[in-house]
Amino acid sequence: MLLASLVEPSFGLIFWMTLTFLTVLFLLAKFAWKPILNGLKEREASIADALNEAKRAREEMSALNARNEELMNAAREEREVLLKEARDIRDKEIAEAKGKAKAEADALLARARTDIQNEKNAAITEMKNQVAELSILVAERILRDKLESSAAQQSLVDKVMAEAETRKS
């Protein structure tokens, strides 16, 4: 009898249960589950977004770092190139200056040598002229002394004539 009352559903309770449960279901669906589930979904979305954003930021950061590294390397290379260029320019300028100085010195030397040669030539010519003059003078004196007498002059003429005769024959 008691067991039968346990497994026999009573009408009143079915009535109240249906009414109450449906009301609770309706009210909770409208005022509780909707905001709770939406809130959960929003929170999950925002967490997922935040994680994605953090990941993107990290990637951007590493990309930035890589670019910085690249820039640094480029700058270092450029510095090397600049330094090398500067060194080359300096070396070239020094070499040029040296060359110029040498050429100038050579030119100077050459000019000095020509000058000396010229001077020497002039001196030699001068000396030759003087020697010739002196020799003419000496010859004049000798000739004058030798051909003072007419006999001497005659003998010379005879001699020259003889010479000419022998040459003719």
């Binding site: 009573s10 009408f11 009143g12 309770l13 009535f15 109240w16 249960m17 109450t20 449960f21 009301t23 609770v24 009210l27 909770l28 005022f31 509780a32 589950w33 909707k34 905001p35 709770i36 809130g39």
Partner: peptide
Amino acid sequence: DISITKNVMSLLVSAALLLIIFISVA
């Protein structure tokens, strides 16, 4: 018989509790 029995009363109390808990959480 749709009397408010002990079970119906308990049902109403639990319904009220559910509403209070979950609407405040919401």
